[in-house]
């Protein structure tokens, strides 16, 4: 993996699109970690006299119906949204790769059963599957994240399984068996390291889709409870003021779009590097 990262650093990131994307991601991550550094306004309590102000030098994204600075709310909402997305990816990655690894390595009836199960998860549209999980678990950012993660489990399981199969039938694994290596050694030393690259690249690519799904559920009102700021719910709040305050929904939404676009660019670069790595 470090090998992969150095290659990405040294070669691929020479492309301007990658550099811009990296900058966007870095800024957003900084918002998530230290929001206070980027804005002096309070994200929760506003100044009623300043309600629904259009963007200007003082309020970059304008203000909302309670006079709160929208840029501050966007910056402070970043942490929750990004953490939810990462949690969702971790859920999908761990559960999916686990299933894929077991299915691919054991093969036979176990493989058949597990893959049929993931087929079914793919048969239910992702958003509906997440919504069903939310219905059962209840509302809240963490539950939304878990729900979105479960909807992505099947994708990870399939990619992991195909990678494991590819590696397992590679002649170097056969050579390792002939050399006398045991099953555990083969999995740890050959299968996992060689299968991990594409799966992690998928995680990077999927991160964008997961952020969108988490935002969509939060937009629908199943995420954080007000007044806690969160990207999706910010856009939803602005819905009622669409005719009089265009900036209210537009600018936070634009932040989501830029971030997802940047993640997508980086993810695809990583995936490409992973492919040429072999």
């Amino acid at each position: 993996m470090t090998h992969l990262l150095t290659r990405v650093r040294t070669r691929a990131l020479a492309r301007p699109a990658d550099l811009v994307a990296l900058a966007v991601v870095a800024v957003v991550l900084a918002w998530a970690l230290i929001p206070g550094l980027f804005t002096g306004y309070d994200p929760v309590t506003g100044v009623p006299a300043d309600r629904l102000r259009p963007p200007d030098g003082a309020h970059w994204f304008g203000t909302d119906h309670l006079g709160r600075d929208l840029f501050a709310r966007t910056v402070h909402g970043t942490s929750l949204s990004v953490r939810a997305a990462l949690l969702a990816i971790v859920v999908a990655l761990v559960a999916g790769s686990g299933i894929g690894l077991v299915a691919g390595f054991l093969g036979g009836p176990v493989d058949d059963a597990l893959m049929r199960a993931t087929d079914v998860l793919l048969a239910i549209p992702g958003l509906l599957l997440s919504l069903a999980v939310v219905t059962a678990l209840g509302f809240g950012t963490v539950k939304v994240a878990v729900a979105v993660g479960i909807a992505s489990v099947a994708t990870f399981a399939r990619v992991m399984r195909s990678q494991v199969l590819r590696v397992r039938h590679a002649t170097y694994v056969e050579a390792a068996r002939l050399a006398g290596s045991g099953r555990a050694a083969v999995v740890l030393r050959h299968v996992l390291p060689n299968a991990a690259g594409p799966v992690l690249a998928l995680a990077a690519v999927e991160l964008g889709a997961v952020i969108l799904a988490v935002s969509a559920l939060s937009f629908l009102g199943y995420g954080a409870t007000p007044p806690t700021p969160e990207w999706g719910s910010l856009v939803a709040e602005g819905r009622d003021y669409l005719a009089v305050a265009w900036w209210y929904s537009t600018l936070p939404g634009l932040v989501i779009a830029f971030f997802v676009l940047a993640i997508g660019v980086l993810g695809r670069t990583l995936a490409r590097e992973g492919r040429t790595d072999r």
């Binding site: 935002s215 969509a216 939404g253």
Partner: peptide, 10 residues
């Protein structure tokens, strides 16, 4: 692919 559907709608 990157733009959120709900945002496009709004």
């Amino acid at each position: 692919v990157a733009v959120p559907g709900f945002w496009v709608g709004l």
